[in-house]
Design a protein around this nucleic acid. Structure first.
Lengths: 135, 135
DNA sequence: GGTCGTGTACTGGTGTCATGGTACACGGGT
DNA sequence: ACCCGTGTACCATGACACCAGTACACGACC
């Protein structure tokens, strides 16, 4: 119900979990105080070894996004929203920067880039459906 | 003189070589028939093992960008320009798509993205200097 | 023909990732 | 008090990518 994982991709599984959790918090899908699925439960849902999930949660804990409650589970820290939006901004910012460097050094013009950008934006918008965000 | 490599990055060295060669061909910095630096020469320039360069050149050879001349070196295939521009387009297209997916699922609005995009575009433009391409 | 430089193949070391298994400490529920 | 579920820790294993070192085969050039 929660995440979509593609194993064998160029990004490790545990990092996919980390990123999706952070993005969900930034988006407001995960709110402060809310509990995240347990290590074993999410592991069985995604057909992944619990150790891999644990590694992702541990990373999220050191990033001050999750907080452990011994014996109960892990909850989203109430002050993690700003951190996650910040992380999201730097994430997409760096990605955009890398894309621009490659595209410009490859001879693409700013006009080409704007066109491609808008085209992909429309594509994603209509792929998400005519409605807005599904909250 | 040719390439800039950052070891320890998330992208392998040999792939950085491959991409930069393709982008240079797409941009017209490398023309068909032109020779590329030899494996050992480029390796000593970048302080990299020759085998890594060889792997990149081999990849470029299977991608029909370079052509080996036994005993002399490797040259850029004359029909590789269209292939490289195509590769560049799909490269930046995929990257833009991935960025958009992450950004939208993280709650960013299309307006946020346009703003960020234009900001980074201006940043890159002025970072490259007031003049245009340096051909 | 010999030397040089070219690309290429083979081998090995190293690090990361994912998995599996086991065990432990803690707290909530009955 | 007792079990159960929780996160956590540790070790070992297999697979895979990256990279370095070395040696080889081929062709140009003198």
């Amino acid at each position: 119900m929660f995440f979509s994982i593609e194993p064998g991709g160029d990004v490790p599984i545990y990092e996919q979990i980390v990123r999706q959790v952070k993005l969900a918090v930034a988006d407001g899908v995960l709110v402060g105080g809310q509990m995240v699925p347990s290590v074993r439960q999410l592991a069985s849902e995604l057909a992944i070894n619990p150790n891999t999930i644990a590694r992702a949660y541990q990373q999220l804990q050191t990033d001050l996004v999750l907080e452990p409650l011994r014996g109960r589970g892990m909850i989203v820290r109430r002050d993690s929203v700003s951190r996650c939006t910040k992380a999201r901004n730097s994430l997409v910012g760096d990605a955009v920067r890398r894309v621009l460097v490659d595209a410009l050094s490859g001879g693409m013009t700013p006009e080409d880039l704007r066109e491609l950008f808008e085209a992909e934006l429309r594509r994603q918008a209509e792929l998400a459906g005519p409605n807005g965000s599904t909250k």
